[in-house]
Structure formats: C-alpha cells, structure tokens
Design a protein around this nucleic acid. Structure first.
Lengths: 110, 110
DNA sequence: TTAATTCATTGCAATATTACGATTAATATT
DNA sequence: AATATTAATCGTAATATTGCAATGAATTAA
C-alpha cells in the first residue's frame, strides 16, 4: 500500500508525523541548518553547499515550503529562501510537546 | 532512486533524519503515545488500540525497537513493550538541539 | 534580439514504505 | 498430546520517495 491510514489517527498525531517526515531526510535537515546559519540564501548556494543536483534541491525546498517551514522570495533570476520563523516556532511547540512526554512517573515494565 | 545519499551529510544530520523518519508515521506516534500513557503494554493491546492489523503493528514496533526507542520483554506468549527511557532522553537531546536553532539574531531575508 | 543565468517542472528509473493475508514459532491450557 | 493464544516473519501488492537528465519559464546581460 505505501499509504498511511491517516483517518485512524488524531489530527495531532498526523500533524506530528507530517513535521517529522519532512525532517526524515538528511538533505532537508542540512538545508534547514544552512538557512539558520546563513539567514538569507539562494537556491544555487544550497546546490553548491549540499552537493545534490539542482532539481533534487528544488524538490526538497518545495516540500519544506509546502509545510510552511521556509519562505522563498524571487529576486531577479534568483530565489532567496529563509526560515518562516512564526511557523517554525509553532512547529517546535507541537514537536516539543511530543518529545517531552512524561518519563518519570512509572517504572519500566521490562 | 528512493535512496538517501547519506555519505554526503554529517553524522548529526543523518542521526536527526533517522529519528525523525521513525516519527514520520502516525501509527508510530500513536504507539509511542500509548506506551507513555500506559507504561506497560502488550502488542495485542496496541492492535486493539490503534486498529491496524497485527503484522502491521508488529512491523512498526520492530522499527521503533531497532532505533532503540522501545524495549520488548517476552512474558509467556505475550510481549510487553515499553519506552527505553535512557535512549528516549538521548534522542530528545539531539532533536531538541535541532529544533532550538537560533531564530532571533537576524531579520528575515524575505 | 540573442545568449546567459537561475530555478521550477516533467518524466522516469531505482528503491523504500505501508499494509495485510498466510504462515510459523513459541508458549500456555486442556 | 492436542489445541489455543500471542506475536514474529514471509511474501506480495499498492503507493511513496529519491535523484537526476532534460526541458521550460522568467529574468538579466550583451
């Protein structure tokens, strides 16, 4: 099938998994880290920085943009990308809540 | 290709993406949340709770176990699963560092 | 206008993921 | 021993993902 049965899960569970999925490829992690480091960044810079072909980087950027984690601004023939800070913060809230589930209250069962 | 070129990325980037990937399916998010809530949990309970077929749940559990985020303990014909707390905490450190990259120092480029 | 630059899109091949029926392995119960 | 229970594994179909060559669209430079 290769298709998650999203209707069986809560909105929160689906949202967490969508954010996580976009972080589930090292190229997208690298793109985001570079955007944080450089702040303003052209697509071509990322192609040089990361070393994948231009269409591949473009595709990864599209996925990040589709989830709202980055924005792109056309400047002449170039496109300048940067982190969408408000959306990043909102994502962080969702993911942090998931990661910080309570660990302490009980003993391990095994 | 369908194959990430992991050799192009840092160990940290690959590690982040591996953790994120395992959270990239709502069933695995649901399994983890249930294990946090119930603490001790048999595989069959998860099948009832989540509503996917037993082989499917078993496969998701295997991936979580392979990454070290849960442990399983055989008890008679059942297997009791729970969160691997030390490994969860270690994973949380890695992911939190990634999520908390500095947002404030610069203006948006676009 | 022509050529160059930059990036998106298309199309495709290779591989991965998801889901589950059928089966197997292991233990427990009768 | 025979049967039941529980969960892992195998095999397979359907779909998704990754990567890139080729191409297209938009702008800029000559």
């Amino acid at each position: 099938m290769g298709l998650a049965k999203t209707e069986m899960f809560t909105d929160q569970q689906n949202e967490i998994s969508l954010f996580a999925k976009v972080f589930g490829h090292p190229a997208r992690v690298a793109i985001l880290q570079h955007l944080f480091k450089i702040n303003s960044c052209f697509c071509g810079d990322l192609v040089n920085e990361i070393g994948l072909a231009q269409p591949t980087i473009s595709q990864h950027l599209k996925e990040l943009k589709h989830l709202g984690l980055i924005k792109g601004n056309v400047e002449g023939t170039s496109v300048c990308y940067c982190i969408h800070k408000e959306n990043w913060t909102a994502m962080k809230t969702v993911m942090t809540e998931f990661l910080n589930q309570d660990l302490t209250e009980n003993q391990d069962c095994c």
